[in-house]
Nucleic acid binder design. Structure first.
Lengths: 203, 203
DNA sequence: GTCTATAGCTAGATAGAC
DNA sequence: GTCTATCTAGCTATAGAC
């Protein structure tokens, strides 16, 4: 993967900003060039064509997502000594604090393009539907093995429920961000959601 | 609102099919004309311009959504005599059976365009985030007043939790539909979700 | 209300000078 | 690696005959 320094980086960032605002098909190479402060034809010294820019944006996203989740070992301590619901609150809050604005904009592009673009849809499946549920399930199993939560529930379903709430709140958040309205409700909703799920799991 | 018979209807349906597949910006008036079996210029005898087609599609959706929810009175009986979780299972299943494919495709357009189009976003807010939660909350309050569920939980939060799951499952479903893969998991997931929420509410 | 024809513009992409 | 200039194709939309 080539670097994102210099002109290439300017083009990349301009494209990320424009695609996340108007969608891939709503942005012209002309506009990307203008926003990068260069001429249209210079784009083709750095990218093969318009689609190649999107591909590189997706590559960047993939690289940024791989192995960014804190490994289970890293939260072993928290699982042992924090209340289970606090562990998940921490996971969610840590996740929402460690945001990279470039990655966030790309995530928005992926949300927009998932209905048209196969690779965008693959990201949605992997990073919103599968990996989080698997991750939560592992954490929950560890909590059970350490006697931190009760053992009378299907943990796969609990993991799915945790993710439903997380997705729903993200969905609310994205709408609020688009509207430019207040987003402080997110913390409260996350907290309510985690409480709801763990009400019956903590013995 | 004008009718959707004849040529106007053909244009309308072609646009719905194309927009839901490629997005508004991914479809040309030329292609809509071709798919309608008429010439490009004839479109302008029925719609002001390309954007007017989208506006009419949104008008159709709005008309179709208004007051389509079964009124609370209609499920009074069910609330009285069915297990609470069965009432919600029924609501969800009835909802998924009474689908109009045209409305479903428009819903997909709205999902796609919500990041760019204000009116699409308004629909998302109204019909995915606000109305369902309010509706579930009313049902839950009725259940409490009839002594069908316990009264020790914040019903607003329960209504939100119900909606999170519903949204999450819809989200999974849309991905599966785009992939052309099996969608039979939906019934099971809906059932699991309703059970999870009502586990603690039914006394 | 449909067509042919075309205006006027914007799109993605390339050639070649510097 | 940047630029000017330009190509070709496609776009939305309109004019006017039938």
């Amino acid at each position: 993967m080539k670097t994102l320094e210099g002109t290439r980086g300017k083009i990349f960032d301009a494209a990320v900003n424009l695609f996340s605002r108007y969608g891939y098909n709503g942005v012209s190479v002309r506009k990307i060039a203008y926003m990068s402060g260069i001429k249209e034809s210079s784009i083709y010294n750095h990218f093969e064509n318009k689609e190649d820019i999107l591909k590189c944006i997706f590559d960047y996203f993939q690289k940024g997502m791989l192995a960014q989740r804190p490994h289970k070992d890293e939260i072993e301590y928290e699982i042992e000594f924090m209340a289970p619901r606090e562990v998940f609150r921490m996971i969610f809050i840590k996740y929402s604090k460690n945001r990279n604005p470039r990655i966030d904009k790309i995530a928005l592009i992926i949300m927009m393009e998932q209905y048209i673009n196969q690779r965008a849809r693959d990201f949605i499946k992997e990073f919103m539907l599968q990996e989080p549920v698997n991750y939560y399930e592992i954490i929950l199993r560890t909590m059970v093995s350490k006697g931190r939560i009760r053992d009378d529930t299907d943990l796969r379903i609990v993991a799915e429920e945790l993710n439903y709430g997380f997705l729903g709140i993200i969905f609310n958040l994205v709408v609020a961000l688009q509207e430019g309205s207040d987003t402080s409700f997110v913390i409260q909703k996350l907290s309510n959601h985690v409480d709801f799920v763990f009400e019956r799991l903590e013995s």
